[in-house]
Computed example of a mutant assay.
Amino acid sequence: MLRLLTFLSGVLYLHGTPALAQQPLQLTDRDSLLLSRQRYSLFRPVPRARLRPMSTGRPDATESAYSVDAGHFQVETDVVRLGQQRFYGEASQQLAFNHANIKLGLTRQMDLQVVVESYTIQTEDAEQPVRRAGFGDVTLRLKRNLWGNDGGATALALMPFVKLPTGRSCGNRAWEGGLVAPFAWQLPRDWSFGSQLQASWNRDPEAQAHYLELAPTVTVGHDLYRTLGGFLEVAAAWDTRAPAWTATLNGGPIWRVTDNVQLDLGVNLALTQATETSYFLGLSFRR
């Protein structure tokens, strides 16, 4: 039976199955991996020796198109983020601590994500200064990789999400949701390209109505050394309340401490008026 499976997997390979781009595996190892991954699940984790290279949805705004390996979890967090914005002469600031995305691999191509806004301090320098602080909203997301998880130069995923109004002081107390479609393309010479389109159904607390927001991104990454890389990204947003776009230019270095630990540092620089500029320090790790 084992010889038959090996023969059939070799036939599939000769008929055009894409080469494994993420890991330098030999043909027999690759075929065995693709066959065996079908059996892994939340309660039957992928062996650590066969984990895919860790792929994170940070520090850029473009989400990863790859899912977390079945039976493993991954944490990606803004350790600290400072945001500043000025609108019609009034300034506002937001200081966030441990806004974390906790991911759990469910199957070979699917993971569950819980985004938690652990603690936020918001201030507004208006005629009557405002200060809010506390726990924020929680967002539930389910990512389904469509292709590219285990090989090939490109990858695409779909990720629906829903935001729960758990925040009291820091939050709009409204249910929101949407869909994210991230795309990844591994380029030669240690370059990478990514993009996504996010459609969100958000709530305007002043108008007491929901509106549609579209947020496309384009990002380019490059490995400078084996453990040090960087990214440059343009992220934009448009919604049905006004015919104007908002945009930021994002960038920063990424340090891969180990195969399962990553640190990042960066800035989201406002390119348009009434857009927040933010500075952040991030940490990601996998178990």
Rank of each mutant, 00 (worst) to 15 (best):
F43D: 15
R168Y: 09
P243L: 07
V11M: 08
G89F: 06
T28M: 06
G105N: 04
G251Q: 06
G177Y: 07
V180E: 15
G252V: 07
D60V: 04
E176N: 05
A133D: 15
G16C: 02
G89T: 10
F73Y: 15
A184F: 13
S169T: 03
A91K: 05
L156N: 08
Y211E: 10
D190L: 01
P216S: 13
A244T: 14
A235Q: 08
L42H: 00
Q23F: 05
Y40G: 02
A100W: 07
P188C: 09
D69P: 07
A242S: 12
V46E: 03
V115Y: 12
K143D: 02
L146M: 07
K103A: 09
L283W: 09
F43N: 14
R173Y: 06
E213V: 02
A184E: 13
N149G: 02
D137L: 06
G10A: 02
A133W: 12
A157S: 15
A181S: 12
S192K: 08
V267A: 11
G105T: 10
A157T: 02
T120L: 10
A207Y: 04
V115M: 10
E176Y: 04
N202C: 03
L228Q: 13
Q93T: 11
E213W: 03
L214E: 04
H15Q: 10
R241P: 00
T139A: 11
D69N: 12
R132M: 03
L95Y: 12
L158R: 08
L269Q: 13
N268W: 00
N202E: 13
A174P: 04
L283P: 09
K143G: 00
R86K: 14
Q22N: 08
T240D: 13
T272I: 05
F183K: 11
R108C: 00
V267S: 08
G178P: 04
T258M: 08
K143T: 04
A199Y: 06
F87E: 14
L35E: 03
T123R: 14
L158E: 07
S195D: 01
A215S: 13
H72S: 03
